[in-house]
């Protein structure tokens, strides 16, 4: 299948458009964050309690009255930011689809394409969560992360569109890599929420409350963890087809496993040991560090069988 150079160029341009839109969206979020309404901190924004009995938590205290109400344009900036992120998302998706059509295969056959897909997944996870939970303000951070991913991909990982080597020519790419991308996107949202959690103090702030941030991270990880598990198992099945063994402690396999254990540890710490707050967040971020090391460090520094780590 010959490569379509026109579409490939379109794809490259769409990536640049996506970066631009994400950055502008980030500014919108930041304006809303900086000048918008102050949220109270300790109590989550939404804690549905039926008929508060003696043991029930007290109603959230009204935030201290502020002299002037937040300017209306701040809220509008926030809304515009959401719209811009959707546009950036569409450009990101378009870039991926155009690349896929240009080369006539799944568009995640090398590091560049893989990273573009991950930033799309992270943005998708955020945008889908956004209307359901008061997480709009981590938008500023998720879109920064996505823009940075894309920028890094364009600057350091870009390779021209083209066919893949025989090892990657398999339907397993659709199964294994897609799952890895989805899970990574969700883990990135959780990681961003965790970082914001650490940055944010306990006091009132414009950032979402700590409880809310923790809930977001937990939710994202609960969804991502089984997908990650599936990605690892699908990887093993592919390895069985491609390399003649389903598990051989290739560096990528080792770090996928370590990441898996680390996220399992987080879930255990929450469920069994009842860890909350800072401690649980730190475990989550350690797991996140393992994930990022697997995506970046292992591909670039450690020789292994994962041949897609094609970096120019």
């Amino acid at each position: 299948m010959p490569t379509d150079p026109g579409l490939a160029t379109t794809s490259d341009q769409l990536v640049l458009a996506a970066i631009l839109l994400y950055v502008v969206a980030m500014i919108g979020y930041a304006l809303d964050l900086g000048f918008g309404r102050v949220r109270s901190a300790a109590v989550p924004a939404r804690e549905p309690v039926l008929a508060g009995g003696p043991g029930a938590p007290a109603e959230p205290a009204e935030p201290p009255a502020r002299p002037d109400p937040p300017p209306a344009w701040a809220a509008r900036a926030g809304t515009a930011a959401v719209v811009l992120s959707w546009l950036g998302w569409a450009a990101n998706l378009g870039a991926l689809v155009a690349r896929g059509v240009a080369v006539g295969r799944w568009p995640w056959g090398n590091m560049y394409e893989f990273v573009v897909a991950i930033s799309l997944a992270a943005m998708t996870a955020f945008l889908l969560m956004q209307p359901r939970r008061p997480v709009r303000f981590i938008g500023a951070f998720v879109s920064v992360a996505a823009a940075l991913c894309l920028g890094f991909a364009v600057r350091y990982l870009h390779v021209d569109a083209g066919p893949v080597i025989p090892a990657l020519n398999s339907y397993w790419i659709a199964i294994h890599v897609s799952a890895a991308i989805l899970a990574s996107g969700l883990f990135i949202v959780a990681g961003v929420a965790g970082l914001v959690f650490l940055v944010r103090g306990d006091g009132p702030s414009r950032l979402p409350g700590r409880v809310e941030l923790e809930a977001i991270a937990h939710r994202a990880i609960v969804v991502a963890f089984p997908i990650w598990t599936f990605a690892v198992i699908a990887g093993a099945m592919w390895a069985d087809k491609a390399w003649g063994r389903y598990w051989g402690w290739d560096p990528k396999e080792v770090w996928a496993f370590i990441t898996w254990i680390a996220y399992a540890a987080y879930l255990h710490a929450k469920a069994t040991a009842g860890w909350r707050g800072r401690a649980a967040t730190i475990v989550q971020l350690i797991a996140f560090a393992c994930l990022i090391f697997n995506l970046v460090g292992v591909n670039i520094f450690i020789p292994g069988l994962h041949s897609y780590a094609e970096v120019p």
Binding site: G248, W249, D250, P251, V254, W255, F257, I258, I261, A262, A264, A265, H268, V298, I302, P303
Partner: peptide, 26 residues
């Protein structure tokens, strides 16, 4: 749980040093 962690940590050096079973030449 501790053993599970140990298991994960014990796997790390295998990804940092070349392994005979994987790349004997290295």
């Amino acid at each position: 749980l501790i053993l599970l962690f140990l298991f994960a940590i014990a796997a790390v050096p295998g990804s940092l040093f070349p392994q005979r079973s994987i790349s004997p030449d290295r």
